[in-house]
Design a protein around this nucleic acid. Sequence first.
DNA 1: GCAAAATGGTTAACTATTAAACTATCTGCC
DNA 2: GGCAGATAGTTTAATAGTTAACCATTTTGC
Lengths: 171, 171
Amino acid sequence: MTAKAAQPDLRDDFPDSPARRAVVAVVRGFGAVQRQMGPYFAQFDLTPPQFQMLTVIHRLQDEPVSQRRLGRELYVSFPNITVMLSRMEAAKLIRRRANPLDRREKFVELTRRGESLLNRIWKVHQQQLEHVTAGLNSSEREQLTGLLNKLIFHHVPEESKMETTGVHSKT
Amino acid sequence: MTAKAAQPDLRDDFPDSPARRAVVAVVRGFGAVQRQMGPYFAQFDLTPPQFQMLTVIHRLQDEPVSQRRLGRELYVSFPNITVMLSRMEAAKLIRRRANPLDRREKFVELTRRGESLLNRIWKVHQQQLEHVTAGLNSSEREQLTGLLNKLIFHHVPEESKMETTGVHSKT
DNA sequence: GCAAAATGGTTAACTATTAAACTATCTGCC
DNA sequence: GGCAGATAGTTTAATAGTTAACCATTTTGC
């Protein structure tokens, strides 16, 4: 915080603002959550995205689920789904099954191993979530959720017009 | 939502809760912010983490800044700093200079190109931040910031005891 | 009925990120 | 003085994510 002379316009730093503080807080908040969830899931030989994948497949699997569907649900690009599923298939957590009626398509389902892992995690998961959000009381948690959802859903007008290679990148 | 018979305990789905909704919202909020900031920074041939790096170096560079210092400021692992800086050095945005008094250490500084890019971005950055946070009014933005900071700082008791290979992973 | 367009998935190349293992240098202490 | 341990940085091997380019099938439209 010493030298301040010389340079011309370089020292007019970026102005702070509520908008900037909010964006920074969102990014940091995510980082904090990730740093807590990472080691927790590692204990089950999973990563956070893989856990998300498992829960989504579980939730949808009353009927056949395609990989594209998973991409849309997880807000993640289709190529990424391919590689994540390949790893999870190697770990025998999920299975890909060709759709006999449309040979382009592959359905994804949990193996028994995947199901039972999910059940095992769920037994302790609520407790972990409580731990992560321990800084806030119940009403503050709801408030936070509400504000973030408002932030999120302000953009995303007509919620599915995409479909290029990537996800919602309609550019 | 049809078949519901067979399986034993598999259908008792994971229970929702304020804690879970909050964590999910934080993750989604981050995703939404990223999807907006990515293309914006791409316009300047930068990525969001690279922009963060530039701003931190700019803020600190009144005195020599080591790479380790940057890792702590950015909450990012030291190896990651190495590779990010290598790319940014190749792009001539920053420069590494050996500390003559301690040859292990390297100081990092912005090049003129880095400085001027940062200035160029700052001219329109506030507007971009306003756009991203457009769903919330000013007081809601402050509220969101406050809640997230409360969430974040609940953990992190004695704020710097780390230093292994990674970041704050004192495990 | 067939060619063009759309759809589902994969591969390739890149950035970001981590943990673990390694190199180089410096410091403390006997 | 010299070695043990600490400190700064890098390399390696993973996972996750992106876009762009590609292959295979299916649908459409004439």
